[in-house]
């Protein structure tokens, strides 16, 4: 076992960090919640970091690491499906990708910017290309661009099957787990900075034990979610590993998001602070694949 970042992964993360630093410099807060950073999307693609899963020296664990780091940023882009699923399942599909797991007519994140849709259902897995004409933009309550397919039947008619639908589902579950660990880590980073700087009652908020202990409990859960996602990308990982990572990550979203907002106070209710960019991604991610309840039951069914 070696549960740390390798030198090769570290070099890749250096590239990712540089890309994210450029994105941070472009970030404009205070307006709508669902702004998508197309330049970040192109920058990640151009630097080749989204293909890591297909290289033997990196693999899916590294892709999960990249997803975690990118989602840790306040800048919003499509990385989960592109880094974890696409290289192994549908490398010929154009990106960004949206992933449809339920009713074909439902609102789905990233659809307004997507160039292809991956469909995961009980019947199998397939993908089809989309253009803006296929999509109806939906007003987003979450920190994602959301959209709905105008005519699902017409789009599904041009879909192409993927060779290994079970692997596609497993990778999609793992991708969401890594996204959750990343957005929660980003939110925690921001709140730790806030309670370190913000003084009330004559002292930094972060010196109060009630705050310290709850943030420490958040840190333990986020670290576990992250390593479960990385493990689910390892060579010997099973479907149960991916579902474990997803079920655990979705389960911890609610208590962590509650604490993050509590400790940022009214500042966290504004769009001037980026907290919503993490928490309102987490709030949607926890409902993917039927949510924590269904994911935990799926884990139970796989385990026993």
């Amino acid at each position: 076992m070696f549960l740390d970042i390798s030198d090769d992964q570290d070099a890749l993360l250096t590239t990712v960090s540089a890309v994210l630093a450029r994105a941070k410099s472009r970030l404009v807060l205070g307006s709508g919640k669902a702004s998508f950073d197309l330049e970040l999307d192109a920058d990640l693609d151009k630097n080749g970091v989204l293909d890591a899963a297909s290289y033997p020296e990196f693999g899916v664990s590294t892709a999960a690491l990249i997803v975690h780091e990118v989602c840790r940023s306040a800048s919003i882009t499509e990385v989960g499906a592109s880094a974890v699923i696409r290289p192994l399942i549908c490398s010929d599909a154009p990106r960004p990708l949206a992933v449809l797991t339920g009713d074909p007519g439902q609102a789905v994140r990233f659809l307004p910017v997507a160039r292809a849709v991956l469909v995961l259902s009980e019947a199998g897995a397939s993908w089809f290309p989309v253009s803006p004409d296929d999509i109806e933009v939906v007003d987003s309550y979450f920190a994602y661009p959301m959209g709905r397919i105008h005519d699902p039947e017409r789009c599904l008619a041009r879909s192409r099957s993927v060779a290994d639908p079970m692997l596609a589902r497993r990778l999609a579950q793992l991708a969401v787990a890594a996204e959750i660990s990343g957005v929660l880590q980003g939110g925690l980073d921001a709140v730790v900075e806030h309670v370190t700087d913000r003084r009330q009652f004559g002292r930094p908020l972060g010196t109060f034990q009630s705050i310290q202990h709850r943030l420490a409990a958040c840190a333990s859960k986020i670290a576990a979610a992250k390593w479960l996602a990385f493990k689910a990308g390892s060579g010997s990982a099973t479907h149960a590993d991916a579902v474990t990572a997803l079920a655990y990550a979705q389960t911890v979203v609610d208590p962590i998001v509650y604490d993050l907002h509590q400790f940022l106070g009214a500042m966290g209710l504004t769009l001037e602070h980026p907290l919503y960019r993490w928490t309102y991604r987490a709030k949607l991610l926890k409902s993917e694949f039927g949510g924590a309840s269904r994911s935990n039951r799926e884990l139970a069914d796989l385990a026993w």
Partner: peptide
Amino acid sequence: VRFRAGQALAASEAARMLVYR
């Protein structure tokens, strides 16, 4: 029952990963 069993199993695996680290 299955939801809670899965939740308990996932929590145990989470602990395992942090201990392994």
